[in-house]
Write a protein that binds this DNA or RNA. Structure first.
Lengths: 339, 339
DNA sequence: CAGGCTAAAGTTATCGATAACCTAAGTGTT
DNA sequence: AACACTTAGGTTATCGATAACTTTAGCCTG
């Protein structure tokens, strides 16, 4: 073997062992801090590992030991700020326990999710945290159910069928806004949303909003569009349609905060007085909203805590402890200056 | 082996092969679409795989074939909206090529980054995309340099020492704002920022801003704080300090858009007229800003494109093609209604 | 000082898949 | 009919680490 070939080869445990003058197994024990090893040997091995720049090959390690420290997290989109907070919460809890998080995005797409799940399972994760409220394929569900690892579903508060579930109550979310609209005496409320057939949790909030209003004898007007993305610009489009079709609208509940912001900007640009002429409410409590001078009325979900609770559930399950099958986190209406 | 034990065991390629009545190698070839396989055999194997719910074990596969389809992406924080866009861009390009992205967060922390890098390398990724502009430890740098896989650095436009680099020009970013301030005739410009010792790119923008102004004989006032986080709330705190210390300030350049938004909200709450009394500019072109009624003047970076370009570079490298050592993406000043 | 015990190491088989090579049967060519 | 070639499939060794077990030497105890 010439120098060039040797240079290309990665340093393995065998190299470390040879350099330290011990068996591979001893080196392995030193790296993992198990077994009984004399201090002198331990030092020789760690020194050798450092000298050679040894980085363990976890593929081999996990394959052999049949356990992994990867926790897979499957989200609709990392781009959505709400999940950023969730992931932060998850990491805060998981990292100190030595787990790494692997994130997959499903873009609310059924087929893509099945694909992602297959990819993620193929990495043999220790546990899985997955976002619900998506149309999951039967095949994907079965694959997960048959997989022998802890699975916790988040965000979705309907019964999950997995080991645990951590979420806000979407029903409460919708109802809170309905109640608020009634309390403030709005007569012609409306709802705007997009892709409701994909985002089942948003659909649940909407349903709850509707039925709560109906209990007060009010039927909200609705403008939804399955083809538009769940982004701020869509809020502008939808609210434009809404106000054109039904100018007397005096309160608008929006699918989420991003859409609410879009709606607000359109209303402002078109000379509407918010909240005196039209009120606006959203869902999520996105952090940016706390510093922008328009303080959107919204239903606040503590997303970081949601991540923490889910991660703690995972850790408990991995330690063989029992967990609550379902945890529903508090949600509360935060009144800003838009209603 | 009783039923219970069998139920716990995961389905392996050997099981699929047995069920299909072929050798393991043949089954493997079918799963990977290589080798020459008769249609009949192919069908039997795929049917068996489907029936048994076979999910390949990629740890074993990668270990054996010595290649992986994981591309590791190391970011300061997923929570920061700017990286969400970058990741989206990366995924858009990488997924069609069959690569999965693995995201690690370093929180701008030197030691944590070293840890994360070690963890990530231990998964034997096919390639690495890492964010620069952080104080990287010598050990981490060496580990990466010695690793035999394509590495592309993003966000940081200083020379990286890796295979490629894709970034905006931070120097241009700072200079653009300085020029803009001069053009608009501001006499008492200031800068606010936090954690500049950690975020080296922000520091570079600031330096460039300063020296460009100095070329016009203006010395900006500065309020920075190493202890505060790079968030919106910090913008409020810093601008409060700034206006108290130097009330005649007529233009403020902020470390990023989040801090700029915080500054804006404080200024508004405290009765300042933006932009007539004080102007505000940021850096990034965060998407939310496009729909909020305050349109922040900012330097726009196409983050999704940045991700795409970096991912394309990775794909090229993985295909053995050469790439440009450094790609500097266009940045431009987008004037909103705050300056 | 034999038997039992512990500490510190080493041996062997294995995880699940694949690279590299090999075999056997069928095809075509001259 | 003999040879080269292709097609479909199988055999064997290996990736890097670890579980489970074994060995060896030193030590204590009665």
């Amino acid at each position: 073997m010439n120098n060039e070939a040797r240079a290309k080869k990665r340093v393995t445990l065998a190299d470390v062992a040879k350099q330290a003058g011990v068996s591979q197994m001893t080196a392995s024990k030193v790296m993992r801090n198990t077994g009984s090893i004399s201090e002198a040997t331990r030092d020789r091995v760690t020194a050798a590992a450092r000298d050679l720049g040894y980085v363990p090959n976890r593929l081999a390690g996990s394959l052999s030991s049949q356990n992994s420290d990867i926790v897979a997290v499957i989200l609709p989109s990392i781009n959505d700020t709400i999940y950023g907070d969730v992931v932060r919460g998850i990491n805060e809890v998981l990292r100190p326990h030595g787990y790494m998080t692997f994130i997959g995005e499903n873009q609310f797409d059924t087929e893509l999710e099945e694909d992602i799940i297959r990819s993620v399972l193929s990495l043999q994760p220790a546990a899985i945290i997955l976002t619900g409220g998506i149309n999951r394929s039967e095949a994907a569900f079965r694959m997960l159910k048959n997989w022998q690892c802890p699975i916790v579903q988040i965000w979705d508060d309907s019964k999950s069928g997995f080991d645990g579930s951590v979420s806000p109550s979407h029903e409460a979310g919708g109802a809170l806004v309905a109640q608020h609209f009634v309390d403030r005496g709005f007569k012609a409320p409306a709802y705007i949303g997009a892709e409701l057939s994909k985002d089942l949790c948003a659909a649940r909030r909407f349903d709850s909003f509707k039925s709560k209003l109906q209990a007060f004898g009010v039927v909200p007007f609705e403008v939804t569009d399955e083809a538009l993305p769940r982004r701020g610009e869509t809020g502008q489009t939808l609210v434009a349609r809404l106000m054109e079709t039904r100018p007397e609208t005096d309160a608008i509940y929006c699918l989420n905060d991003a859409i609410a912001l879009g709606a607000l900007s359109w209303l402002h640009d078109n000379g509407y007085d918010v909240p005196n002429q039209v009120a606006v409410a959203g869902f999520n409590g996105t952090s940016l909203l706390q510093v922008v001078r328009t303080r959107l009325t919204t239903v606040d979900v503590n997303r970081e805590r949601l991540g923490q609770v889910a991660a703690k559930a995972v850790v408990s399950l991995l330690n063989g402890e029992d967990i609550a099958e379902q945890t529903v986190l508090d949600t509360q209406l935060v009144q800003g200056n838009t209603t």
